[in-house]
């Protein structure tokens, strides 16, 4: 469904992605693991069009993906950015409506009710400013906001970052649920174990290059990966 070929990205003189090739099958969950600065966010931001690539191509359903951010969303790919990035000066309901920008106003209203069922806490807080939510609630809001766009592919950038263990489990349960509902997920995580547990396929990114990739279940038994990312 999503194909990335020979993607190279740099920031001035820093090479952030070097010849990255990967593909994501429809309906699957693919995770990208790697340490700080590996280039994970750069990858998602390049797909989203907020970072410009130097070379390489990105295809959605065999057609080149547009490069401006709003067109990428229109094509059906939305990102839940690192650090949640909810709009603090907008209410919870307005944040959701921002996520539903690409669909009609009436469809967005309907979708919003769905989100309140999926995330009851957001329903209770709908008219509260998003900046006053707790970190966990903000993460739920950020995910719900992404789902509002009714995307084909959801890009998630470290959704478990900075959350208490209970909430981390909850977030991964939600992601599993999202995949089950038919949305394709590309998940970036530092929590490699959890990410690999819920994904079909995993890519390991190191210093901007794909170091290893394979079925998540297989990589669990890879000695190198065990040592470097799964804590021995």
């Amino acid at each position: 469904m999503l194909q990335i070929r020979n993607l190279c990205v740099n920031y001035d003189h820093v090479v952030a992605l070097d010849d990255v090739t990967l593909s994501v099958e429809k309906g699957s969950a693919v995770s990208i693991i790697g340490s700080n600065g590996a280039g994970k966010s750069t990858l998602l931001n390049t797909i989203s069009g907020v970072v410009k690539r130097r070379s390489g191509e990105i295809l959605l359903n065999n057609r080149p993906l547009p490069t401006s951010p709003h067109e990428v969303v229109k094509a059906g790919i939305i990102q839940v950015p690192e650090g949640r990035r909810v709009f603090p000066n907008l209410t919870v309901a307005e944040n959701l409506l921002m996520g539903g920008w690409r669909i009609s106003a009436s469809a967005a209203k309907k979708k919003m009710r769905e989100m309140y069922e999926l995330f009851p806490i957001l329903g209770q807080r709908r008219s509260q400013l998003a900046g006053t939510l707790s970190g966990g609630e903000q993460q739920m809001l950020a995910i719900a906001r992404g789902l509002m766009a009714e995307p084909q592919i959801l890009l998630l950038d470290e959704p478990s970052l900075g959350l208490a263990p209970v909430l981390v489990n909850q977030v991964f349960d939600i992601i599993t649920e999202i995949v089950r509902s038919g949305i394709t997920v590309l998940l970036v995580e530092q929590n490699a174990r959890k990410a690999m547990m819920i994904s079909d396929y995993t890519y390991v990114l190191e210093n901007g290059r794909i170091r290893k990739h394979g079925k998540s279940a297989d990589l669990f038994n890879d000695e190198e990966i065990k040592r470097a990312y799964l804590g021995g």
Binding site: V50, H70, V73, I78, P81, R85, F87, M98, W101, A149
Partner: peptide
């Protein structure tokens, strides 16, 4: 407050 995230939501 956040131009980049606004564009990530599909706003032109």
């Amino acid at each position: 407050v956040d131009p980049r995230t606004t564009s990530l939501m599909g706003v032109n």
